[in-house]
Amino acid sequence: MANSRSGDSMTARIVRVLDTFTMDRTTQTTAEIARRSGVPSSSAHRIVGDLIAAGLLERDDENRVRLGMHLWELALRGSRAMRLRQVALPHMERVQAAIQEHTQLAVLEHDEALFLERLSHPDAGANITRIAGRLPVHASSSGLVLLAFAAPEVRERVLAAPLKAVSRETVTDAAALRALLAAIRRRGWVAAPGSIEQVSTGVAVPVRERGEVVAALSVILPRGAPHEPAIAALLAGAAGITKDLRESH
């Protein structure tokens, strides 16, 4: 794609425009998109217009811009994440029925835990995660499992970067995190009290496909609740997902 005067390709500028939309910022003016993306105003207006014409963005009744249905449609076509979510959902439902707490499925994406699905229970406790939401990979139970089984170069990159605290109990010391990740690989699960919310404990296990860890299955328990029943339910759920992934090929 042609480069701009700044050296950015058109593809890079389109991605920057789309990246200005977040879970909490679902509609914007074109001027806001230009400012947040760092794309010059004239270019941002042209890109937004082209994306609207293609159905990737839409204008609402107040002339504000939002993500378009065609973008959602394209994302679902042949998506590895959608296949994983569809296979995992029945097993997640069984875990939630047994534990009656928030049940989640996450994958590793750009050194963060990206949540593909979340099932909630009316009586479940605190939980800040949302579908299509992200958490730092070192700060959540799902992220810790994904990081523990990630490629060594991914682990080293995360360990070498500043580890920001999400709560007082987030592990931010690289040596301590390295030891925790080794323990997760040995036992095949993690219970992380207070790493995100002081009142909660995240419990997570790996989900494998063809021997490779492709996701993390987790529940969020009230702080102090026994985690052994959750581990058993999660391990059974992960085994079921692995089996169904194998059979779906």
Rank of each mutant, 00 (worst) to 15 (best):
R185C: 15
L177D: 03
R118H: 00
R185Q: 14
E156M: 13
R157C: 01
L146N: 06
S140Y: 06
E112V: 03
E169S: 14
P152K: 06
D173G: 12
R178H: 14
E117N: 11
A161G: 01
A113Q: 04
F149Y: 15
E169I: 03
A124V: 02
V158H: 04
A183E: 15
A151E: 15
S167D: 06
P162T: 01
A176K: 08
F115D: 00
A161W: 00
D173I: 00
I128G: 11
R130A: 14
S120M: 07
K164G: 13
R185P: 14
T172Y: 03
D123S: 12
G125S: 08
S142K: 01
S141K: 00
A124E: 10
I128P: 15
P152M: 10
R185Y: 11
H121T: 07
R168L: 15
A176V: 11
V154E: 12
L119W: 01
E156N: 13
S141L: 06
L146C: 09
L135A: 13
R155S: 13
T170G: 05
L116K: 02
R157K: 11
A175P: 14
A176Y: 07
D123I: 01
L147F: 02
E156K: 12
V171N: 05
E117A: 15
P136W: 01
V158R: 02
A160G: 15
R185T: 12
D173N: 12
A113C: 10
F149S: 03
P162E: 04
S120I: 02
